[in-house]
């Protein structure tokens, strides 16, 4: 334990730039899968509150499966299964990065769908009725009346999801994406310094996620006083 500072003093000028380079990939996966998750989340939430029973049931299935499966299993299914099920198609575009983004995005979509639904349902029914009685179509009242107000409610849980997502990107190393954990593994085992390297990696993740969690907490406080 005592020699850790010395190990860092000797090696950090080599390790840190390399790990930071890999962490760009982590941020890239996080960013793109967040967008995919939000898009999926909104679509599935709208299907979940739809009047059509088939659409609603499909949405419920998506949510139950997306939340019930471990993320690793989703990543493995998304990345390995489709090319084998449909070998005739052209899969050259389907990289580990695409698989990672899609897998994390689907899992996030299931989580966010429930968040968005509770946001939509938290609003008083009267809002929608008022909008409809003003002659808005259901789609218009959703876009102009319901969603803008629901956004405020869902912002803190979406922020918490983003923090979780940033940490979950570490699982992409298990399907071989070259992100920070992958880089850390190769450095740790080539330099025989697993403890020092993995603690450094933990520090980098913390440096990325902690500001985000402070931001979410500030947001939570502001929104709760605003109400």
């Amino acid at each position: 334990m005592l020699e850790l500072p010395q190990i860092y003093a000797e090696n950090i000028h080599r390790w840190l730039p390399e790990l930071l380079y890999y962490s760009l990939m982590t941020l890239k996966i996080g960013f793109f899968s967040f967008i995919v998750a939000v898009v999926f989340g909104i679509l599935v939430a709208l299907c979940r509150v739809s009047k059509n029973r088939l659409v609603r049931t499909l949405a419920i299935w998506f949510i139950e499966i997306g939340r019930g499966l471990p993320i690793v299993v989703i990543l493995y299914i998304i990345y390995f299964v489709p090319p084998q099920l449909f070998p005739g198609l052209n899969w050259t575009w389907f990289s580990d990065f695409t698989g990672a983004v899609l897998g994390l995005g689907i899992h996030g979509g299931a989580i966010l769908a429930e968040v968005f639904r509770s946001g939509i349902e938290a609003l008083h029914k009267g809002q929608r009725e008022a909008a409809m009685s003003l002659g808005m179509t259901p789609a218009k009242s959703m876009v102009y009346i319901i969603l803008p107000q629901a956004t405020r409610i869902v912002l803190p849980p979406v922020g918490n999801y983003a923090i979780g997502l940033l940490k979950d990107t570490s699982l992409c190393t298990l399907i071989g994406v070259n992100e920070i954990m992958n880089g850390a593994k190769s450095i740790a085992f080539s330099d025989y310094q697993p403890m020092a390297v993995f603690i450094l990696v933990a520090g980098i993740y913390f440096a990325m996620s902690y500001p985000l969690s402070l931001l979410v907490r500030a947001l939570e406080r502001r929104l709760s006083t605003a109400q």
Binding site: K167, S170, T173, M181, P194, M195, V201, Y205, S209
Partner: peptide
Amino acid sequence: RGTPALVQLFV
């Protein structure tokens, strides 16, 4: 809560 479980396992 600020670091991934995978990193903790590896440490």
